[in-house]
Design a binder for these strands. Structure first.
Lengths: 189, 189
DNA sequence: GTCTATACACGGATAGAC
DNA sequence: GTCTATCCGTGTATAGAC
């Protein structure tokens, strides 16, 4: 073969990483296959050697992104209140609001995932539930884990719609305070 | 004139209402001008007698939707704990999850609003801040109002990504419980 | 596997008749 | 104000050469 098996893997990985950034920046339906390929220095036609359709790419992006989020947010198993606080601070930060392309996929792609076919949503559910389980274990409460997860996602969606940095900051700070307060009340396992 | 001034107003209103439904169902960038006009029984070309561009329509949709949300969620001024609970129950319900086209625009259009130009985001900010003020007055806390607003939006975004109704219900119920508990602790003004 | 070329549908927007 | 026709760009996807 003129191209090594390794080459294909590497190209696929580059495509996934680059496409995830583009999708989080501009929305997945907005970006075209041609643009996604050009972004990694290839032509549009080469796309279909890696994915049979754009939808299949989306599923792969969602899986990759959420696996990464699980990694970032669930920690290495030993999660104490300090690490938890650091996690929250990073998620509910202005830099996260300002750089959607580098952050969590749920606030940006949530609506698009919700409109996708079953394959994508099943993938999303699997990873979201893993994320939830991880937090529920740390917090000692299934309900609280879902509530905090929702609130974090919502805070970013709301803050990103706004124009004024001060108001954005207020939104982030409010969720951060309410969550910290609730966790302090609850105590960790 | 062959068409009354009233006719234009009515057509514009029909277009706005119908387009909002389409946008909430399929995403604004996904739907085409032609489809939006056909949905109210007109041809695509007639669109530009009402809006100079698709973006201008989006701004109008956002304003109309958020004004409506403010109306639904802020109540008529006299908001007691019973009305508040009814509001939350409706927002965090399975029918709201299942029928995005009939519900709040923030969870569905939030990401698209965030990517829009300043005109749209300024309109969004104005109405979101009014909504916040209304809730803050009721709750007696700016911070709590932002936190609850974010959590409600986030819960819908998260629930809609999922496939299994039981998990969706759990997400909704968790946020509902946490919010009710927090409000009970806080007390109303 | 990647390229160029292409088929084909649909996007937003405009022009002129009624 | 609405229609039909049209311009022009872009979208996804495929075919065949290398």
């Amino acid at each position: 073969m003129r191209y090594s098996a390794n080459h294909k893997m590497e190209t696929r990985e580059k495509l996934l990483a680059s496409s995830a950034v583009s999708a989080k920046k501009s929305g997945f339906s907005t970006v075209g296959v041609d643009g996604l390929m050009k972004a990694i220095g290839l032509s549009g036609g080469a796309f279909y050697s890696h994915f049979s359709s754009k939808d299949e790419l989306f599923k792969a992006i969602v899986e990759r992104e959420l696996a990464q989020s699980l990694d970032r947010l669930s920690g290495d198993g030993a999660m104490d209140s300090v690490k938890l606080e650091r996690c929250l601070k990073q998620y509910l930060s202005m830099s996260h609001v300002e750089q959607p392309e580098a952050g969590c996929a749920l606030p940006v792609l949530g609506a698009e995932i919700a409109r996708s076919d079953m394959a994508v949503r099943e993938a999303a559910q699997t990873w979201i539930c893993r994320l939830h389980e991880s937090w529920a274990r740390i917090l000692g409460s299934d309900s609280l884990a879902w509530a905090i997860l929702s609130q974090c996602v919502g805070a970013l969606v709301v803050a990103r719609m706004l124009v004024t940095p001060q108001v954005q900051r207020e939104v982030l700070k409010s969720s951060h305070e309410e969550i910290s307060r609730r966790i302090a009340e609850q105590g960790l396992d």
